[in-house]
Design a protein around this nucleic acid. Structure first.
Length: 492
RNA sequence: GGCGCGGUACCCAAGUGGUAAGGGAGAGGUCUGCAAAACCUUUAUGCGCCGGUUCGAUCCCGGCCCGCGCCUCCA
């Protein structure tokens, strides 16, 4: 099955297939590690995760490179404020980022590349650009890209810069540039700032050059897909194209994917609006990592997603239903055999599910057949028309679902535990929701003991006592389910 | 100002030129000691508004209204 993916470059939905007929090579812009990741960052990374997981599900081998920008103005500024070198400042945020990826079940790309590990590659690239007449050095020792040397500039974002060349706006700090639109490849060192001594002078890289240098290093001159948030389309990706293609004279990437921004309560998320959330903020409020994942991927990547707490609650409940169903399949004993109707329903769901994802990663549409199969299965089970062979077939469909969505398998407790440990270490326990703390109050053993007591009380038909225990557990976030096979409990 | 996106039931949301997936929530019911879970029924003659094309439009075209994003560091 071939993925049809919208290509920003052509404005069309096109098949995404490896140009070399084997491995799909992709580059996706990663984080700038100056702070903790927010849900907007993660929406993009999650949607790219959906892409890579679907490709893997369809049997496409991947080589996915993600950069980590560990040197830039904000990092330098923040490190200076903290009074430490950037090499000491960034690791905590790099580690936090990886921990957040793990919490959200975002798969690790095959290759992670840090900017500061590739300074020499960037310098080489700038030298090549100079040789090609596309780069020049200014008096202060900075290097700029000569936009006039690259007529195709703007082809990705569909911008016509012809009328803007003679910028009426003159930036006094950049008076040395040939043209106001020329962008920095290399910034000359300012006193006290982080800098590298290199063949092109002492300084630090501009933002865009790292992606050109590192994609070339790990994926070659030309690769299959380049992805990132919509804001990166211009100027970042446009600049990457200019830098890379001026040297290679080959298309940097054949396919470009851009994930739209999310809104929070109908507005762009920003600190000043007071609608800014990191993943950690939400975990401490008691929301499950899986619910955050589902909420952020359920609206297809090309649409704005309006993030709300209602939406998070909805995702929480939807996951609960999936997990309850999965548990029912796993723990119920079914008679041998199959129900042809169920076999057909499972095959249909699987087909519709895959087709929806193959259609430009339509995650919203992909959910529908899964829930339809869930209901059909529950009905069949209730009526005794569901057999061991059906269970296996339905479990296989759920496995396909989770191969991409990854929300049924429950690792929420670990993510929450890590978040709480972090809050403790950072002195942020005041931000932890009381309900979350209440939920941590009982150990599994204590819950088991109370459940046993309640079962005993029920046997003695002491329902008052049994209900008392149930209420007590409910206050601690533990929900009970009585069934023929005994009592199941779960944490909310 | 330039570029682009969206307005579908209480909320989220998919979708197609032929009469509206799915999720959440609510209501009623079955089951249960009571719950929970599960299932059944129910909640848009309607898809922002007005025209047009068509045998037929939510889906195509035009206009209008409203909301949002990008154009600057930003996922």
């Amino acid at each position: 099955m071939t993925l049809l993916l919208f290509n920003t470059l052509t404005g069309q939905v096109e098949p995404l297939v490896p140009i070399d007929g084997q491995t799909l090579r992709m580059y996706a812009c990663g984080p700038t590690v100056y702070d903790y990741g927010h849900i907007g960052n993660f929406r993009t990374f999650l949607q790219v995760d959906v892409l890579r997981r679907f490709l893997k599900l369809t049997g496409v081998p991947l080589r996915h490179v993600m950069n980590i920008t560990d040197v830039d103005d904000k990092i330098i500024r923040n490190a200076a404020v903290a009074g430490i070198p950037i090499g000491e400042y960034t690791p905590r945020y790099v580690n936090a980022f990886f921990e957040d990826m793990e919490a959200l079940r975002i798969e690790r790309p095959e290759q992670i590349a840090r900017a500061t590990d590739h300074i020499d590659r960037m310098v080489e690239l700038i030298q090549k650009l100079e040789a090609a007449g596309a780069a020049y050095k200014t008096e202060d020792g900075s290097w700029y890209f000569r936009l006039s040397s690259f007529p195709a500039y703007g082809k990705l974002s569909k911008k016509d810069l012809s009328g803007m060349e003679d910028g009426a706006r003159v930036d006094v700090d950049e008076y040395e540039k040939d043209s106001a639109r020329d962008f920095a490849l290399w910034k000359a060192a300012k006193p006290g700032e982080t800098a590298w001594d290199t063949a092109i002078g002492r300084g630090r890289p501009g933002w865009h050059i790292e992606c050109s240098a590192m994609s070339m290093e790990y994926l070659g001159d030309s690769f299959d897909l380049h992805a990132g948030g919509e804001d990166l389309m211009f100027p970042h990706h446009e600049n990457e194209i200019a830098q890379s293609e001026s040297v290679t004279h080959k298309p940097l990437a054949r396919h470009w994917m851009h994930v739209r921004f999310l809104l929070v309560d109908g507005r762009k998320m920003s600190k000043s609006e007071g609608n800014f959330y990191t993943l950690r903020d939400l975990l401490l409020k008691g929301y499950k990592a899986s619910a955050i994942r589902l909420a952020l991927i359920s609206v297809p990547y090309r649409h704005q997603l309006n993030f709300t707490f209602d939406g998070l609650a909805e995702a929480t409940n939807a996951i609960e239903r999936l997990r309850t169903f999965h548990e029912r399949l796993r723990t119920t004993t079914f008679a041998e055999g199959t129900n042809p109707a169920m076999q057909a329903a499972a095959a249909k769901a699987q087909g519709e599910y895959m087709e929806a994802l193959a259609n430009d990663l339509n995650t919203a549409e992909a959910r529908a057949p899964i829930f339809e199969l869930l209901r059909a299965s529950n009905t069949a089970i209730d009526q005794g028309q569901f057999f061991a062979g059906d269970r296996d077939a339905v479990l296989r469909v759920l496995a396909s679902f989770d191969a991409v969505f990854d929300v049924i398998a429950d690792r929420d407790a670990e993510a929450t535990k890590h978040a709480l440990a972090w809050a403790e270490a950072e002195g942020r326990m005041a931000d932890v929701a009381p309900e979350l703390l209440a939920r941590q109050a009982l150990s599994d053993e204590e819950i088991e003991a109370l459940v046993a007591q309640r079962t005993q009380a029920k046997k003695q038909r002491n329902f008052a006592r049994a209900d008392q225990i149930r209420n007590e557990l409910a206050e601690k976030g533990v929900v009970l389910e009585d069934s023929k096979d005994g009592v199941r409990w779960k944490r909310k």
